[in-house]
C-alpha cells in the first residue's frame, strides 16, 4: 500500500481552479462568488482542523476520547436535523427526536459492525470507529431529517382531514396512516437510490478513497458493500423510529391533534 503524499503546491493548484471558477461567476454576475470563496475557506479550515483532531485521537487512542468525539458528532448531527425542519417541535422535542433516534440507530449499527463484522482490536479503535460512525451519522441524519420534515409538513397541510377523521371516530393512527407511510418512505428513498446506483452511476466515495490509497479494488468493494448495508439499516431504522416518535408526539393522550407543539422553523 502506498499513498502519493500531496504537497502544498498541489493543493494550491487545485485552489486556483476554484479561484478561476469564482472569477467566471463574477463575470457572469451569478452573485455566488462570495459564498463560493467562503465555502472554500471553510473547507480548508474545517478539514485541517478535523485532520488535526483525528491525528491527535489516533495518537491517544483511548475509549474516553473516542466516546467524546462520537458524542460531539452526534450532537452536531442532531442540530443539523433540527435546523432542516421547516416546522419543528417546540422545546426539547425539536432537538430530542432526531438526536435520540440517531443515537439509537447509528450508534447501535456502528457498534454492531465494529464488534461483529470489522472486528478491530480494541473494537473502538478510532481509525475504524470514527469514519464508520461518521458515514452512518451523515446518512442517517439526512434520512431522519427528510422523514421528519415530510411528516410535519403533511400533517400541517392535512390538518383538516386529520381532524375530520378523528371527528368521525377514527384513531389517530388511522387518520395519519398515509402521511406516516409517505414520510417513512421519503426518509428511506435516498439510501435505496444510492444502493441502486452504486458502482453504475457513481463510484461511492469511501471505495474511491480506499482505491486511491492503494487498496485492491475487490477489498475496497467489500468494505463499500458493508458500509452500504450498514447505512441502509441505520438510516431505515432511524427514519422509521423518528417518524413514529414524531407522530406520537403530534397527538396527546385524548388523541387530539396538537399542532401547537410545532413551531415554524427559521425559513
Amino acid at each position: 500500500m502506498s499513498v502519493i503524499s500531496l504537497s502544498a503546491l498541489d493543493l494550491t493548484l487545485a485552489a486556483l481552479l476554484v479561484l478561476a471558477l469564482a472569477g467566471l461567476t463574477l463575470w457572469a454576475r451569478l452573485a455566488v462568488g462570495r459564498s463560493l470563496l467562503i465555502a472554500s475557506v471553510r473547507t480548508v479550515l474545517q478539514l485541517l482542523l478535523v485532520g488535526l483532531v483525528l491525528q491527535t485521537l489516533f495518537d491517544h487512542a483511548q475509549l474516553g476520547w473516542v466516546a467524546l468525539m462520537a458524542a460531539v458528532m452526534l450532537l452536531v448531527a442532531g442540530y443539523e436535523v433540527m435546523a432542516r425542519q421547516e416546522r419543528r417541535f417546540a422545546g426539547i422535542w425539536g432537538y430530542g427526536i432526531g438526536t435520540a433516534t440517531m443515537f439509537v440507530s447509528a450508534f447501535a449499527v456502528t457498534v454492531l459492525a465494529l464488534t461483529t463484522m470489522v472486528g478491530p482490536s480494541p473494537w473502538w479503535e478510532p481509525q475504524y470507529a470514527i469514519p464508520l460512525l461518521g458515514m452512518l451519522l451523515g446518512n442517517t441524519m439526512t434520512g431522519i431529517a427528510l422523514g421528519l420534515d415530510r411528516l410535519t409538513q403533511a400533517v400541517w397541510r392535512e390538518r383538516r382531514v386529520i381532524e375530520g377523521r378523528l371527528a368521525l371516530g377514527d384513531s389517530w393512527l388511522c387518520a395519519t396512516s398515509t402521511m406516516r407511510r409517505e414520510a417513512a418512505r421519503s426518509g428511506l428513498m435516498p439510501t435505496i437510490n444510492a444502493m441502486a446506483a452504486a458502482g453504475v452511476v457513481s463510484l461511492p466515495g469511501m471505495m474511491t478513497g480506499q482505491i486511491l490509497a492503494g487498496v485492491a479494488p475487490v477489498e475496497a468493494v467489500k468494505y463499500q458493500i458493508l458500509i452500504m448495508f450498514l447505512i441502509a439499516a441505520g438510516t431505515g431504522f432511524g427514519a422509521l423510529g423518528a417518524v413514529w416518535l414524531a407522530s406520537v408526539r403530534l397527538f396527546d393522550h385524548r388523541s387530539r391533534l396538537r399542532l401547537d407543539r410545532l413551531h415554524p422553523g427559521r425559513r
Binding site: 383538516r160 381532524e163 375530520g164 377523521r165 371527528a167 368521525l168 371516530g169 384513531s171 385524548r254 388523541s255
Partner: peptide, 16 residues
C-alpha cells in the same frame, strides 16, 4: 376518545 367522538359528532362548515 374514538368512542367519544363517535357519540359526540362534530360537523364543520366544510366537511373534509
Amino acid at each position: 376518545p374514538t368512542d367519544w367522538r363517535r357519540q359526540v359528532a362534530y360537523v364543520p362548515a366544510e366537511t373534509a
